[in-house]
């Protein structure tokens, strides 16, 4: 079922005297439970697409429909509510509040929304435990490794039970082992928790953990492929894998 539908998105940024067309007519539908990676050369418009899908920015033309809501027609307050309650964001830099513990950071979106601290921290604890950080709830961000900080950030993005998780280069600041762990985690969110996940990345092995791969170039989608179409998987790899097991 379609969760979010973007239609003919156009976005142009003024850069000095020249106008840079970041998106030149992008249409994309994400279904519930999709795990999509967006790739493309730098400047191809992938972060712009993520910002428009998440209501962080408005398109010059085109529409974004999340469920029954047309994001492009919402006022700023309406957009803020959608972002706070229905969409989770994860960024390359983890953006944790340095003076707050892991559990306080994760509870923050709920407490900002008026939920009592005890209820918010109860939910925060559940997500921290799900993400393997049950023994780190009272640590401050600088007492955690990069991979752990990103997991706290993911828990924070999920604590409001959003329908859509958007991640912009979520492994960009991590070593390859932690990056693999985060990729595995995002995959399990989609597999086990039926979250819809869209991530922007330039790392092939992180992108390959997704089930669908979208390529942008010069502001348009040039390729949109299902990766787990096992019918198409080369029999060579399959037989090699069978030999390994």
């Amino acid at each position: 079922m379609a969760l979010i539908t973007a239609t003919q998105l156009v976005k142009t940024y003024a850069e000095g005297a020249t106008a840079v067309r970041a998106l030149a007519g992008v249409s994309l539908t994400l279904n519930e439970g999709d795990f999509v990676a967006v790739m493309g050369p730098s400047g191809c418009g992938k972060s712009t697409l993520l910002h428009l899908l998440g209501g962080l920015d408005r398109p010059d033309a085109g529409t974004v429909k999340l469920g029954s809501d047309e994001l492009t027609t919402l006022d700023d307050e309406g957009l803020t509510l959608v972002r706070r309650r229905r969409i989770g964001f994860v960024f390359q830099s983890f953006n944790l509040v340095p003076v707050m513990s892991a559990i306080e950071n994760v509870a923050l979106p709920l407490t900002l929304d008026g939920v009592s601290a005890s209820v918010a921290e109860g939910k925060a604890k559940v997500w921290l435990e799900r993400l393997g950080l049950g023994d780190r709830v009272n640590h401050l961000p600088d007492q955690l490794s990069g991979g752990q900080q990103q997991r706290v950030a993911i828990a924070r993005a999920l604590v409001t039970e959003p329908v859509l998780l958007l991640a912009d280069e979520p492994t960009g600041n991590l070593d390859s082992k932690s990056a693999d762990d985060i990729a595995r985690l995002l995959r399990s969110l989609s597999d086990e928790h039926r979250r819809t996940v869209l991530m922007v990345t330039h790392d092939p092995r992180i992108a390959a953990s997704a089930r669908r791969l979208v390529f942008l170039k010069d502001g348009v989608i040039v390729d949109d492929q299902n990766l787990s179409a096992s019918l198409d998987t080369s029999s060579k790899v399959r037989s090699q894998l069978e030999a390994l097991s």
Binding site: A183, R184, R187, P204, R205, A207, A208, S209, A210, R211, L213, F215, V222, D223, Q225, L227, S228, A229, S230, D232, T233, S234, V237, R238, L241, L244, S245
Partner: peptide, 26 residues
């Protein structure tokens, strides 16, 4: 180029999936 890229990404997807499943016991 795209046909080749898709094929390689499907291989990589398969390998990553297998690696995740295998890493614990292999």
């Amino acid at each position: 180029l795209r046909t080749q890229r898709t094929s390689l990404y499907r291989d990589l997807h398969e390998l990553m999936t297998h690696r995740q499943e295998a890493s614990a016991r292999a």
